[in-house]
Nucleic acid binder design. Structure first.
Lengths: 217, 217
DNA sequence: AAGTAAATCCTCCAAACGGGGGATTGGCGG
DNA sequence: CCGCCAATCCCCCGTTTGGAGGATTTACTT
């Protein structure tokens, strides 16, 4: 969605990794039977792909690794990314739990689709990913977006936010005092108030809270 | 994409915010002319919507605020979210720069579309958002996903990562020593090595780097 | 077998941190 | 007008941190 199918230019060359033989062949059939797509190779596991990768120059990898080798799928993405940073990898799995999703995205996957997706939508998503997009199944996209949502109430005053920002920069009381043109005593007062409002007792906790809850900037 | 159009159930009721009168009316026409959608109200600015919100119960807000009131658009999303946490807001603007995009997402927008989107795709995206998805234009989605990508090389050893995690938790040398069953001296050694590898000199900087570069977990 | 890296332990010491108090000013709302 | 809160300043004092050094053991690599 949100991008046109390309049928006139050179077809999109891709490789797939799918452990189930039947599904692998179905995927291959789907891709090779659709103008604009060309499945160069299909592997049952990531190791096989990594072994053949030097001789391949696909435009995209469709990675479908089911339970059992869960950790492997993420590691494989990282490995592919280390060798071909520009090669987009799209996950297509049954894992819908957050941990796996975010682990895959952190490892470098550009898209994440859950199985059960309709063939036409799969093709559109693949095209999207190859064109610089990041196709995600709706629930996945929502969860990703939600990681950006910030708690509405930020109890800190403007001045306190300024001080907190300096804390995050690792500045000392003295540097902060100089930067904000106030005395070190005042800095301490602000920091004490910040700690109280955030329910923390150390700089490190305050920094973590500031970053996680996006209290600054 | 990735979701079906719903024409049989009750139509999706939405309100739109769009400062340009012509575009506002075109949007209204498009929505009201499509089975499954119903545009309850259209406002020229966010303030007007907020004033009427108590009497409205839309299933989605389509927010299209162009340049000039940039900050206002983000603030409006935050305000809507504060009053109706469950009401999804989809941005539809010309702003493609990262700052604005992430500010909107942080404020609580569930989707982000750039103008120029085809009508059919807009409708699909709206339906997607209402069904729990997070429609994003391809370039936007990619940028969002890239914020998860982690630098491939993490120079820290396993033990150092454990210590760093404790640092992020705000633990003292002593607590860390007890938690990891080592002496405080050893903890200090690890921390010194961590600081050197990360090129930082304080706890706070190390914590920021750990979170930003996803060095832990 | 030698070399390297990681993990463990140690001392000395100055600087920074954080908890407990308290005080003054200015502004804003009831 | 009075109270509250943010912002500013100050004290005492124990704890924690981090820089600069050095040492040992284990384990992996060459």
């Amino acid at each position: 969605m949100l991008s046109q199918r390309n049928t006139t230019e050179r077809p999109l060359e891709l490789v797939i990794v799918e452990d189930d033989r039947r599904q692998r062949e179905l995927l291959e059939l789907l891709l090779n039977g659709t103008p604009g797509f060309y499945c160069r190779a299909a592997f049952p596991d990531a190791e096989a792909l990594l072994a053949e990768l030097p001789g391949l120059h696909p435009g995209l990898v469709l990675m479908d690794i089911d339970l059992g080798s869960g950790r492997n799928g993420v590691a494989a993405v990282a490995e592919i990314r280390a060798r071909r940073p520009e090669l987009p990898v799209v996950m297509l799995t049954v894992h819908e739990d957050s941990d796996y999703v975010f682990a895959a995205l952190c490892a470098g996957a550009v898209g994440y689709l859950v199985k059960g997706i309709a063939p036409a939508e799969l093709l559109a998503a693949v095209q999207d990913a190859a064109s610089g997009g990041s196709p995600m199944s709706p629930q996945i996209a929502r969860r990703v977006v939600q990681t950006f949502h910030v708690g509405p109430a930020n109890p800190l005053t403007e001045r306190e936010k300024e001080v907190l920002a300096q804390l995050c920069a690792g500045e000392s009381y003295r540097s902060i005092a100089e930067a904000l043109f106030i005395s070190g005593h005042t800095v301490r007062s602000h920091i004490k108030n910040i700690y109280e409002k955030l329910h923390v007792h150390t700089r490190a906790e305050a920094v973590v809270k500031a970053l996680k809850d996006r209290l600054i900037q």
